[in-house]
Simulated assay, not measured.
Amino acid sequence: MRATLRSTMIAKCEQQIARKGEQVGLSFYAFFKNKNDDPELLMEAATWWIHTHRLDHFEKAHKVKSLLISEQSLSS
């Protein structure tokens, strides 16, 4: 996953946790606007979410953030 997408996803998880609490759930669509203006980026997120990690449609933001951070530290 490209670093910019990972950073965007981590920031969105943090934002949602701050706004709605530790139990907030989200889907990979949460990282995009309501229009499909970058299908390659959307597919990259969907592949990471569905194929790589086999996550449910809605997952806890803190779980997604933890996965993203752990992968980030592995790639550094």
Rank of each mutant, 00 (worst) to 15 (best):
N34E: 12
A11Y: 03
V24G: 04
Q15C: 03
E71P: 02
K33I: 05
S66V: 01
E44H: 07
E14H: 13
L74W: 06
F31T: 03
Q72D: 15
P39T: 09
S7D: 13
K33L: 13
E44Y: 02
I17F: 09
I50G: 10
A30Q: 08
A11S: 14
S7R: 13
K60F: 11
E40S: 03
E59M: 15
S76I: 08
P39S: 13
S75D: 04
R19W: 05
N36S: 13
G25L: 07
L41G: 10
A18H: 10
V24N: 03
S75W: 03
D37C: 09
S73A: 11
G25S: 14
I69P: 00
R54W: 00
A46N: 06
L74C: 10
I10G: 04
L5A: 07
H51W: 09
M43Q: 13
M1R: 03
K35A: 14
L5E: 00
D56C: 14
S76Y: 14
T4Q: 09
H62Y: 12
S75C: 06
L5H: 01
R6F: 02
R19I: 07
S73W: 08
D37N: 12
L67G: 00
K60Y: 11
F31A: 12
F31Y: 14
A30E: 12
E44W: 02
S66T: 09
I10E: 11
V24L: 04
M1L: 08
K60A: 15
L41Q: 12
N34I: 01
Q16L: 15
T4W: 06
H53E: 04
A61D: 01
E22N: 15
S7C: 10
R6P: 01
L74H: 08
M9N: 06
A45N: 09
H62K: 12
V64N: 00
A30V: 02
A3I: 05
V64M: 01
R6K: 11
N36T: 12
L41V: 06
G21E: 06
K33P: 03
I17A: 15
K35I: 07
K33Y: 11
K65T: 10
L55S: 05
A3L: 05
R19D: 14
K60V: 08
L26C: 15
I17Y: 07
L67Y: 13
W49N: 00
M1T: 13
L26V: 14
L74S: 11
S7N: 15
S27I: 00
S66F: 06
A3E: 07
S75P: 01
A46R: 01
R19N: 13
S70A: 08
I50C: 13
P39C: 03
E40Y: 11
K65Y: 04
W48R: 02
L67T: 03
S66W: 07
Q72L: 09
A30M: 05
I69G: 08
Q23C: 08
I69L: 13
K12T: 15
D56M: 12
G21K: 08
P39E: 03
D38H: 14
I69D: 03
S66D: 13
E40M: 05
K63L: 10
K33A: 14
L41C: 05
E14W: 04
E14V: 12
D37W: 05
F32L: 04
I69M: 10
K12Y: 06
G25Y: 01
E44T: 05
D37A: 12
